[in-house]
């Protein structure tokens, strides 16, 4: 019901419709463009990889392909939490590479109009790194933070590679 309501609302607002996958991290709701997401899987056995940034949990075997797993909680400096049965790995293609991101819970796919996206508030002290926030979506009953992981990773990769090589 909620989705249809949202959908109607966004159609009223006009503009181009985009679909977002919404997920939760530490009670906050985030959205990511559905086109980025390859699949959403349950937690698997993660193999730790030494000498990586702290937010890299390790690697998993995704049907014969080895992909790195990143904890968004650690990445965003949130409190660490135990994995439970709602914990999911969102497998996404970021800058041409498959990567998995651990989130607390994946809730739904929502449609919004791109007109609803507001620029991020000017100063966000602490918490999410400003660079990968693409905007916020402010609706009556909810507030969604729209992420642009591509941005986060180009900057990050650069930093990581420069320390390694």
């Amino acid at each position: 019901m909620q989705t249809t309501a949202l959908k109607l609302k966004s159609e009223e607002a006009g503009g181009e419709l985009i679909q977002l996958v919404s997920f939760n991290l530490e009670k906050e709701e985030y959205g990511i463009n559905v086109l980025m997401v390859r699949e959403i899987i349950r937690m698997l056995n993660i193999t730790r990889v030494p000498n990586t940034p702290h937010y890299v949990e390790g690697v998993i075997n995704l049907r014969g392909k080895v992909i790195p797993i990143i904890s968004l909680r650690k990445k965003f400096d949130l409190m660490e939490a135990e994995y439970d049965k709602r914990t999911r790995i969102m497998v996404m293609e970021v800058v041409g590479e498959m990567m998995g991101f651990i989130v607390d819970e994946v809730s739904e796919v929502i449609r919004i109009s791109d007109k609803e996206i507001q620029p991020p508030p000017p100063v966000v002290s602490g918490g999410i790194e400003q660079e990968c926030m693409a905007g916020v979506i402010n609706q009556a009953e909810r507030l969604l933070v729209l992420l642009d992981l591509e941005k986060m990773f180009t900057a990050d990769e650069r930093r990581f590679f420069s320390t390694v090589s």
Partner: peptide, 8 residues
């Protein structure tokens, strides 16, 4: 290990 973890 992919590009991201290539140079460990």
């Amino acid at each position: 290990l992919g590009k991201f973890l290539a140079n460990l």
